[in-house]
Amino acid sequence: MSQLILALQWATDPAHWSGPTGIGVRLLEHLWYTLLGVGIAALIAVPIGLLVGHTRRGRGLAVAAAGAARALPTLGLVTLFGLLLGIGLLAPLIAFVVLAIPSLLAGAYSACEAVDPRTVDAARAQGMTELQILTRVELPLGMPLLITGLRSATLQVIATAMLAAYVGNGGLGRFIFLGLKTQDYPQMLGGSLLVIALAIAVEALLLGIQRLTAPRGLA
């Protein structure tokens, strides 16, 4: 309990929030890493997932690929890419993209599959093209499931973005690894609490977005 109190004191000390290595800067770095990782993963996974969900083809392959990606150890990936690519952001960023793809892929194809086939058939009967059906029918109705995938991917990347510090980058992981190295356990625990607080705040934000984007009849 005393360590937790010391960690809270460390995390709320205004002196630790200022400067180029303060909590404020590390927090922004952590958010930037998360945004990059999830954003790149979304550009890859969402179009593929929507195509799979709309056409109902390749679902088995998509599920297998997502499951295989989930089984990969993130720390192992960061270490491997760090050895191959050297110190920098590219190595952990690739690992974050790999980590985020399964949830985004699953959310995208589930968004299309969840739509009642009769609704899709009715849209086709009205002369809508396949692209119109996807963008005007399936995607709006399945948006909550797509956001669910985004929420899952974002929380996973936030939780593991601290590993960027493992190969010389910033983020809240700097406090964790520095605290471990110097046996400054209040700083180490304080960094962990900041990651948890950030994850909760982002989860609340995305949950609000999910509720706002839910079709009125399904809310």
Rank of each mutant, 00 (worst) to 15 (best):
L6W: 02
R211Y: 13
L6Y: 10
L141Y: 06
V52F: 09
L207E: 11
T55W: 09
S152Y: 10
L150K: 06
T182M: 15
T21G: 12
A197N: 06
R174E: 09
L83W: 09
E130A: 11
L163R: 00
P215A: 05
V115I: 09
L28C: 07
G39I: 00
G67P: 03
L6I: 03
T21P: 01
G208V: 09
T55A: 11
R211W: 06
G168W: 04
Y33A: 14
A123Q: 15
L43W: 11
G37F: 04
M162I: 15
I5D: 09
Q9T: 02
G168Q: 13
G179H: 04
C112N: 01
R70N: 10
D121Q: 14
L193K: 07
V157P: 04
I23M: 06
P20T: 12
L155K: 08
L27R: 01
C112S: 03
P117D: 10
G53S: 07
L36H: 07
G142C: 04
Y185N: 09
S2C: 04
S103F: 03
R56Y: 03
L93T: 13
L85H: 06
E138C: 07
A204E: 03
K181G: 12
A71V: 11
P102M: 07
H30F: 02
L72K: 08
L146V: 12
Q187Y: 03
Y109P: 05
I87F: 13
D116F: 02
V98W: 08
V25A: 13
A66D: 01
A62I: 00
F81K: 08
S2L: 14
Y109R: 13
I5R: 10
P92V: 04
Q9Y: 09
T74W: 02
L80P: 00
L198V: 12
T129Y: 08
I40S: 06
A201T: 05
S103A: 15
T129S: 14
F96H: 03
Q183L: 08
V115Q: 05
C112Q: 02
A15Y: 06
R26T: 00
L83P: 01
A65W: 01
G179P: 06
L4V: 15
M128V: 11
G173N: 13
A69C: 14
E138A: 08
A100Q: 02
A159N: 13
L194G: 02
G67L: 14
V115G: 00
V137L: 07
V167K: 08
N169D: 08
A42H: 03
L193V: 06
T213S: 15
A100L: 07
H16A: 13
S152K: 04
F81I: 11
E130C: 03
R151F: 07
